[in-house]
Structures are given as structure tokens and as C-alpha cells.
Design a protein around this nucleic acid. Structure first.
Lengths: 158, 158
DNA sequence: AAAAAACTTGAATATTTATTCATTATGGGA
DNA sequence: TCCCATAATGAATAAATATTCAAGTTTTTT
């Protein structure tokens, strides 16, 4: 895995956990984690990740991860998915989601469609989904990502 | 109504119908409509309207209206609302939404919560909602706004 | 394994966007 | 009506962000 990937993952991680209001600020947060890059590269990364700068309550601006809800019909798929979700566990760097019988394919497809950076692929059976995360992605990162995709899971996980 | 309001409405209207990729471009689109302002003012307007600049398919950037789906529990309210929606008609600059019995308050509340610029207020009975649009807002503008709030209405309206 | 193509990056710079500062308009109270 | 306070605006400028160009890397092809 190249350094770029680590940087991209770290950027997503930082942005989802803190309010960042400029590239310069983000740049120094990356530096704190030992990732030294220039503003030019960061600008390209943010474009690639489709990170948005939005206005934050009249005062300043913050960067925000792209909204995961632009897929047509997403709302329906989402409540269906939340309904069928049972649990998630991790072992050997893999995530295993248990679902109600028959729900696995549609939940996996939802994840595939939003194509989050942290999860490189899924494999669905009937009531089980195997999640293959990127290297260096923590369990909490995966969980955060799932909640980003299906907000209603927040109450069901962790 | 001051000119500022007209400008804000026009900005939302333009952005929802065209791809605009810079303030300068938007500025000249406003000019075409007889609205002459400076970039400074536009920058403030966009901040006020919480319009976002997002990356558009690796190539460039576009401006986008704020997502209307950040209200917690919105997804559920939304499918509920779509379910209860029957029709919308206009008369004397007012919009009248008919709903299934009992649905009006929750649909109206959804509209109020997202607080779209184009609709200054709602009044809900049991199966009827009165929509009070801003001056100079067209029926189509109101419909577009409703669809922004409740995407599932797209198939039900117009 | 060499050559070609494609990708990644930083430095410098161009471009774009936000803010400051001064000015003018607008909207209540006395 | 006259103040006063608040809001809106433009010009200039500061600040932030995107891109160009050249160089270095990695990947693919032959």
C-alpha cells in the first residue's frame, strides 16, 4: 500500500472526527500523524475524495465527507437495510455482518454502491456479509463508515 | 421585498437548474437576469445559503444546494411523507397540498424543519397544508423545492 | 530488462474566494 | 422627523485553493 492511500484514509478519518476549516489546518493535522505533504497534493486529495467545504453556521467553513445518500431510492434501501442488520464482528482484519435471512445481498449492495474508501469489497451470502477493509483501517473506522452509509445503524452498533 | 431576497432566490433557482462552476460564472448568470452584484456579495450570499462547492467527476467543480437530509430521522419522516402525499395545487400565489387524513402535520413539519428559502411558512390542518411561498417564486420553484425535500415525490408530482 | 506509458508529487503560480474597511441604505424608537 | 442601531454593499485586498509544469516513481508493454 502506497503512502497516498494512507493519506486518503487518514484524511477521511480526521474529517469525520474533527471540524477542520482549511486545507492548511488539515495539512498540519496530517503532519502530526507523520504524513508530510504539500497543499497542492492535499487539494488534489480532497477533490478525489469529493470532500466538500461547507459553511458552518454563519461563522466559518468546515470540510465534510461526501454525503452517502445520493443513490436513487437510497432511503428505502436504507431503512430496509437497517431493519435486516443484526450485528457486526471482526476477526483477522475482516468484518462479518450478520443479517436477518435474505437481507445480506441488499445490504452488501448498498455498501458497494456507496463505495466507501475504507471498504475495498464485500461478499454476501444469504444472512452473512464479509467485509474486506483496506489495510490500516480500524474496526471503528469501518463502523463509522457503515453508520455514514446507514445512519439508522447508529443505535444498533457499538 | 428587497433586491437581496430576489438575488437569493435567483441564486437557488440557477444552481438547482444548471451546473455552475465558479462564482464568476454565477455572477454573469445573475447579470443576464438583470441582477448586478459583485463577487464579494455573492460570496456572502453563498455562505448564507449554505451552497457548497463540490468536486464533479474528477474534472471540475460545481455549486450545489445544501442537502436537505441532515435532519435526524429524516429518512423515516420522508417515506412517511411521500406515502401520505396526495396532490399539490396552486391558487392566488398559494400552494395547497392535499394529504391522506392525518398526514398533513407531519409533512408540514418536515417542510418547516428544512426551512427552504422559497417557502416562508406552512399551515397544516388534518389533510391539507397551506404553503406560503416567497414573492416571485414560481409554482415550479415550489415543486422543485418540495422534491428536494422529499425526493420520492418526484414520481408523484408533475 | 529496457522502453513506454501512466501516475504521483512539490514548487511556483494562477485563480478563486473570503474578509476588511469604508460607505450607504434601512428600520425602528424618541 | 431625527437619531441611532443594524444591515447591506462594493472596492480593494488578503487568504485560500486549484492548476501548471517539471521531475521523479511506479507500472505496463514489448
Amino acid at each position: 500500500m502506497g503512502n497516498r492511500t494512507e493519506r486518503l484514509l487518514t484524511i477521511r478519518n480526521i474529517i469525520s472526527s474533527k471540524k477542520v476549516s482549511s486545507q492548511e489546518e488539515l495539512l498540519s493535522l496530517l503532519e502530526e500523524k507523520g504524513l508530510n505533504y504539500t497543499q497542492a497534493t492535499l487539494s488534489r486529495d480532497l477533490k478525489f475524495l469529493k470532500v466538500n467545504k461547507i459553511s458552518d453556521n454563519e461563522k466559518g467553513y468546515i470540510y465534510e465527507l461526501p454525503d452517502q445518500h445520493n443513490v436513487p431510492g437510497h432511503e428505502l434501501a436504507e431503512s430496509y437495510a437497517a431493519q435486516g442488520f443484526v450485528s457486526i464482528k471482526f476477526a483477522n482484519k475482516l468484518g462479518v455482518i450478520k443479517t436477518l435471512p435474505g437481507y445480506a445481498p441488499s445490504i452488501a449492495s448498498l455498501i458497494d454502491q456507496t463505495n466507501p474508501f475504507e471498504i475495498i469489497g464485500t461478499l454476501a451470502g444469504d444472512d452473512t456479509i464479509l467485509l474486506i477493509p483496506h489495510e490500516n483501517v480500524s474496526e471503528q473506522d469501518v463502523i463509522n463508515t457503515l453508520v455514514l452509509i446507514i445512519p439508522e445503524l447508529k443505535s444498533k452498533i457499538k
